[in-house]
Each structure stands twice: as C-alpha cells, then as structure tokens.
C-alpha cells in the first residue's frame, strides 16, 4: 500500500511538471500538490529527487541554493518511446495485438483490408 501511494505521488508530480511551461522548485511542486493531497514537504522533496535520479527530471540551480526541476522529455515523447519499446520486434516487454517493426508495407495492408472485405462481401 505504501509503495502504491508512492507511485501515485510520483505520477502526481510528473503530471504537475508536465503541465507547467518551465522548471519548478520543490517548494512550488509541494504548494501545487497540497491543493489535492496532504504530502509532507520532505516526502515531495524525496520523491522529486528520486525522479531526478531515475532520469525523469532535469535539475537546474534556482535562487537561494534551491534546485528547480523540469521533465527531461514531454509526455508525448515518453509515450512514443514506450510504444516503440512495447511494439519492437523482440516482443520481450509486451504482448501486443499486432506487432510491426516500423509498420507494414502497402501490400500487406492491402491484403489485410481485402481479407476483411471478402468476408463482408460474403455476408452482404
């Protein structure tokens, strides 16, 4: 349960930082999150630091010795990366409905469409 809550906090922090234009400090993250959840400042700070160590956040020095953080890549970029990883040729990570290395040729796409069409013709 504790682990799950931690994951949710990570997701909430990433959600917030993805929604922002520029980098934000831990203080700003904590303030923004306290509207919807009651996480201690130190907890938020630890989780932000973890996300930085795991390579999700980039860190830069901000005013008064604090750090500010922003996502290394946009949500869309991460999404695309995950999709590539899941649907790559090896299939080690995921069981996909259809898997293609970089897509399919026009010929194969046409063959697929034709297979479906011939069934509809038979029915109709």
């Amino acid at each position: 349960m504790a682990l799950r809550g931690f994951g949710e906090l990570e997701a909430a922090i990433m959600d917030f930082l993805w929604s922002q234009e520029g980098p934000r400090t831990v203080r700003e993250v904590h303030t923004a999150l306290s509207a919807t959840r009651s996480s201690a400042y130190t907890t938020v700070s630890t989780v932000v630091d973890n996300l930085h160590k795991k390579g999700w956040l980039r860190r830069a020095a901000a005013a008064r010795g604090a750090f500010s953080y922003c996502p290394v890549a946009s949500r869309e970029e991460y999404g695309a990366r995950l999709m590539r990883e899941a649907l790559d040729g090896s299939g080690d990570r995921a069981e996909a409905l259809v898997r293609f290395v970089g897509g399919m040729s026009d010929q194969e796409a046409a063959a697929l469409g034709a297979a479906l069409q011939s069934h509809q013709d038979r029915l109709g």
Binding site: G89, L97, V98, R99, F100, V101, G102, G103, M104, S105, D106, E108, A109, A111, L112, G113, A115, L116, H119
Partner: peptide, 30 residues
C-alpha cells in the same frame, strides 16, 4: 476483433517500412 486488428495494423503504418508479422496478421484475420 478482425476489424480492430486490421484498423490497428494499417492505422499505425509509417510509409515504406518493413513488416515483421504482416503475414501472421493476415492469417489471423482469415
């Protein structure tokens, strides 16, 4: 399921690339 498979197989296709399992997909639709 067949329609979904065809839609997803053809919908995600960047042009000119090689398919790894296109043959299997056609076979499965049949």
């Amino acid at each position: 399921l067949a329609r979904a498979l065809v839609a997803m197989a053809t919908g995600s296709a960047p042009a000119g690339a090689l398919a790894a399992t296109g043959g299997d997909a056609v076979e499965r639709v049949h």
